[in-house]
Design a protein around this nucleic acid. Sequence first.
DNA 1: CCGCTGATAATCT
DNA 2: GATTATCAGCGGA
Length: 189
Amino acid sequence: MSKPVPADFWAQPVVPLARALIGVTLLVDGVGGIITETEAYDFDEPASHAFGGPRGRNLVMFGPVGHAYVYKIYGIHWCLNFVGGDHPGSAVLIRALEPTQGVDTMIARRGLTDPRTLCSGPGKLAQALAIDHALNGAPLDRPPFQLFLGDTHDIVVGPRIGITKAADLPWRFGLGGSRYWSRAFPKDG
DNA sequence: CCGCTGATAATCT
DNA sequence: GATTATCAGCGGA
């Protein structure tokens, strides 16, 4: 039996938070699965939307922790983040999950049948879970969101994907051995 | 499995 | 006008 994530879960520093989110079960209207890949974005590093202070689309990142930050990227895809950390302006990008609940619904939304590719990337995950701007700023402790703690897992670490600034920070986390990643992690040294 | 390319629009310079 | 926390489709290894 899984337990909901506690309210103080979101207040830990954002990098450990991104790590702790691996293995958590995320459901949106009952559809979702086990988070397998996350990335931390801190308030004072240039890859973060919060860099430079609160303005425009990043305002939710400076709001209360434990809320969703949803934005559109490349004019096409939505990306889901969880606001958290010990300083305003930090958030965790949810990059991938292992589908466990509502798989048929995800298949219908994505138009694909391969469970490996249903949620293996932030844009794909948003499409499969029907995430869009309507959920920007929504609290994570009530419907349509449900979040449950998972078991402890082996965690793999690597540099974040798709960014050009602060690209060396090892702030990407994955569920060790999972088949549900957006991309492989660099081999451990 | 990996890399390349076009799509497409809000945000930034 | 350039950039962007991406993806599907394609071709090659």
